[in-house]
Design a protein around this nucleic acid. Structure first.
Lengths: 165, 165
DNA sequence: TTTATTTAGTATCTTGACGAAACCAAATAT
DNA sequence: ATATTTGGTTTCGTCAAGATACTAAATAAA
């Protein structure tokens, strides 16, 4: 997008993408999960231009996904660390990684995430109800929530009208 | 990104983002999950420019995430439908939506996804091992998979070296 | 105390993507 | 035959992305 973000979208997907949907941003966060902390580490591991990296890190710090911590040493070294808000993006990255593993990895998955207790790969993410049973996208009901605006309400009838009693 | 995509990244996250990481693309897919099928529906619901929408839909069809089906009617109407590859992106969207609900929805979630059996909201996505126990990002082991290249292998030691026996 | 080196950035510039608006073509309802 | 609807393509101006070169601050080394 340009100056304007996704304009007036009352949708958490759009809002999330306004924060982490820019080029490089999710890869920077991936690097952070893989242990990168320093500006130079992100730069080398990703091959991203310095100005872009600088701007993305600043934005991530500004919106609370990462925090910047000065550390002693030559130069003016800082650590960039994920905050709780940032660590909470882990399911997003795992979902993307699992999809890429399945649909864009002809030679097999480049990386595996292992449960340290068993050494086995983590389970595929599944959308489930509270019972734990998997739910298919087309069977879910979509209802307005407390943050819905008029436009959303017009589009999606409230749960009381669509749920069988 | 520019002409070049994320260059030479042997990583399923990067590969997934090359396909669905452009502006608007995930919102187009969100609309498809919400039931949109026609060019005009996507255009109206998203407020995206026609040329951008046209280009994104073409790319999605070209890479197998959506399919285009001519339908009878005035004009030259077509349906754009998610393929299995596209429907398999559902966890990605749910992960983004849940994160946005938690961290970017001051007035509460705009939309709720409900289990039709119970009327209750779907469960938060969790990264788990095969046992179903939740796993935190920092405790996971990262090991090269069959698709790893030399660069990845240098960076991440094989599981046999990091797993306790 | 001076110098060199490392880190983490800014400044500049070119290219190209984004978005608005206008235009167009095919199909069909009337 | 005509008008309307759908789904685009074309054109064009603007602004941001990205590569490269330059810079500032801190400190380790001499």
């Amino acid at each position: 997008m340009r100056n304007n973000q996704f304009p007036s979208q009352t949708c958490s997907v759009a809002r999330a993408l306004e924060i982490v949907g820019e080029w490089w941003t999710l890869l920077i966060i991936r690097e952070a999960f893989f242990g990168a902390r320093r500006f130079g580490e992100f730069e080398r591991n990703l091959g991203v231009a310095k100005n872009v990296l600088s701007e993305r890190l600043s934005k991530l710090v500004a919106c609370g996904v990462m925090e910047r911590i000065d550390v002693p040493g030559r130069g003016n070294p800082r650590d960039y660390r994920l905050t709780e808000k940032g660590r909470d993006l882990f399911p997003v990255l795992v979902a993307l990684m699992q999809w890429g593993d399945r649909w864009a990895a002809a030679a097999g998955p480049p990386l595996r995430l292992l449960d340290p207790a068993t050494g086995a790969e983590i389970a595929p993410l599944r959308v489930t109800g509270s019972s734990g049973a998997a739910l298919e996208p087309q069977e879910l009901l979509i209802a307005p929530g407390p943050g819905a605006d008029e436009k959303v309400r017009r589009r999606f009838p409230p749960a009381s009208e669509i749920l069988p009693r």
